[in-house]
């Protein structure tokens, strides 16, 4: 145990592990978005996709547990680092002007916290179905869980669209700093490729957020209907 403690007492180790976990979560976010894009192919595609996942409970639950652990590690470590960082400067400057720090980088704690609340909300809302009592709970014609119907129902409601929109903004901002920052923390830099690495952060963030928002607004604007 003391070895683990010693390991994580090092700020650089903590950051490396937090970065690895964060990049893992980013991978999940990409995968999640791509999977959900099947909604554009109609109810059969997305319901089928969902049912394939549900038909492999061991894989599904292992993945879910894994995600939980990775997310827990990431959150735990960054909270610990953030608390330590806050102690780094007990007296604040009276005047402070930033030169290089992006808005995203300065709001990581805020966007991260928002993201956490959003994910909990999202899990309760669409995965567990505990938030919206009026949501359809049925099966589709083939007897699979009607994910398509749930999505359509949810995003017709401007309240949920609003909440998800804010969630996606937080996700986008968080990722736009997190990805390139994670690469730097892992020591991945290269004279010729550094600009690419920097762009990769905002690029991937934009990709995920646009993908997710496209579903939400396609439903909201009636481009996809039941």
């Amino acid at each position: 145990m003391s070895r683990v403690k010693v390991f994580f007492n090092s700020s650089v180790n903590s950051k490396i592990v937090a970065s690895l976990a964060g990049l893992g979560l980013t991978g999940f976010a990409i995968f999640h978005m791509l999977g959900n894009l099947q909604v554009f192919e109609g109810s059969d595609a997305i319901n089928g996709y969902a049912s394939i996942l549900r038909d492999m409970p061991i894989l599904l639950w292992t993945a879910r547990m894994g995600l939980l652990i990775v997310a827990g590690l990431h959150i735990g470590l960054v909270i610990r680092l953030a608390l330590r960082n806050r102690q780094g400067r007990p007296v604040a400057y009276a005047v402070r002007r930033y030169r290089a720090a992006s808005v995203a980088s300065r709001t990581m704690v805020l966007t991260g916290s928002l993201l956490l609340f959003f994910i909990i909300f999202h899990l309760l809302h669409l995965t567990a179905g505990l938030i919206d009592a009026s949501a359809p709970d049925g099966l589709d014609i083939q007897g699979r869980v009607d994910v398509y119907g749930k999505i359509i129902h949810a995003f017709r409601n401007p309240l949920y669209v609003g909440i998800y929109f804010v969630g996606q903004l937080a996700l986008g901002l968080h990722l736009s700093h997190a990805i390139s920052s994670g690469l730097q923390t892992l020591g991945i830099e290269h004279a010729a490729l550094n600009r690419l690495f920097k762009l990769a952060g905002s690029g991937i963030a934009l990709f995920v957020v646009l993908g997710n928002l496209s579903i939400i607004f396609a439903v909201f604007l009636g481009l996809i209907r039941a």
Partner: peptide
């Protein structure tokens, strides 16, 4: 050196690059 840095109570790097800018 990293151990000493942590011991002295410096924070950790947030990759904001204000350091480079000043």
């Amino acid at each position: 050196m990293v151990q000493a840095m942590d011991r002295e109570g410096f924070g950790s790097c947030g990759n904001q690059y204000e350091c480079e800018a000043v």
